[in-house]
């Protein structure tokens, strides 16, 4: 039983990170019907910027509490990623907004490759370690262990997601975003500046991605230039699982995917009698993606949309 609890904890922490990244995919899809494949790379940039700032602080020999240095790193990561999100939309997607959707999709993949290589040029090809700035505290209950970092990741993710839901459901900006998602042209006629709303969507997604990137690198203790690829793919799966375009769906999908992966990797060996090993962990994410696409293409919380392409 304690093992099951532990696997659930592992899964929920991983899942809340997936959920944060998945929100970026789903928000952009909701408004533009574009799968922003560069989103995973924005997450990677968040981690890298944070580590660069932390490294600079460590190099300057400033005597500060570890948490404050990480906070600075996080803020810098958010700032840079927000800029990055804005520029990506402006340079890569806006000129193609009226182009066939396939063109935008290919551009997204292109942007992702460009960002990955850019990061490789700036920070090199090797793994960068997250310095042990945050003292790790373990809490044990019923045989399972949870660390302060895991608790922090889950709480912060929940707060961010709740904040985002409030923003979208309760504020003028949120209403403008929903209107733009429903019908861009009509929203424009109603006096909504569609371009600003789209830019803001990218910016909010990028900020969440930056935070997720910092969380991942702090959680696993390392970052590297292609970490965004797999993370992005998993988050995309989570978004599809929950119903792409649906905010609550992305959250649910992320958490579910994390738990499925964790339980899957933990029990597959025993369940299949050693036929399939735990190295099939990543396969679960994509197996789930295929299942969802076959059985319920609109996702768990998605609504059926008439195919427009």
């Amino acid at each position: 039983m304690d093992i099951l609890t532990q696997q659930l904890i592992n899964g929920l922490v991983l899942g809340s990170i997936y959920a944060l990244v998945a929100l970026g995919y789903t928000m952009v899809y909701g408004i533009l019907e574009l799968i922003n494949f560069a989103h995973g790379e924005v997450t990677m940039f968040g981690a890298m910027i944070c580590l660069a700032v932390i490294g600079a602080f460590a190099g300057s020999g400033a005597d500060m509490h570890g948490a404050i240095i990480v906070l600075f790193g996080l803020l810098a990561a958010i700032a840079v990623c927000v800029g990055l999100g804005f520029v990506i939309e402006r340079v890569a997607y806006r000129p193609l907004r009226r182009a066939p959707r396939l063109a935008a999709l290919i551009t997204a993949i292109g942007v992702s490759i460009v960002l990955q290589n850019l990061a490789m040029l700036i920070w090199g090809k090797q793994y960068i370690s997250f310095p042990p700035l945050l003292p790790l505290v373990r809490y044990e209950f019923g045989g399972a262990v949870i660390t302060n970092l895991q608790i922090f990741i889950m709480i912060l993710s929940c707060l961010l997601m709740a904040g985002l839901l409030l923003l979208i459901k309760r504020t003028r900006l949120g209403r403008a975003m929903r209107a733009t998602a429903q019908a861009q042209d009509i929203a424009g006629l109603m006096g909504i500046n569609v371009n600003t709303i789209i830019s803001l969507t990218f910016i909010i997604g990028a900020a969440l991605a930056a935070i997720a990137g910092v969380m991942v690198s702090a959680y696993y203790g390392l970052a590297h230039y292609y970490m965004g690829f797999m993370l992005g793919l998993k988050a995309f799966t989570a978004a599809v699982l929950g119903g792409i375009g649906n905010i609550a769906g992305a959250m649910l999908g992320g958490l579910l995917l994390g738990v499925i992966e964790s339980l899957g990797a933990g029990y597959i060996g025993t369940l299949t009698g050693g036929f399939l090993g735990s190295h099939y962990q990543d396969v679960f994410a994509f197996f789930v993606l295929i299942l969802v696409l076959v059985i319920r293409p609109s996702g768990l919380l998605g609504e059926r949309v008439v195919e427009r392409a």
Binding site: N10, L14, Y220, M227, A265, G266, S278, H279, Q281
Partner: peptide, 21 residues
């Protein structure tokens, strides 16, 4: 226990948890 991972993974919590048992 005999568990497996890949040369691109970073998350081993699931397999380590089942090893812990």
């Amino acid at each position: 226990a005999r568990e497996f991972t890949t040369d691109r993974s970073t998350d081993f919590l699931a397999i380590l948890t089942s090893i812990k048992a």
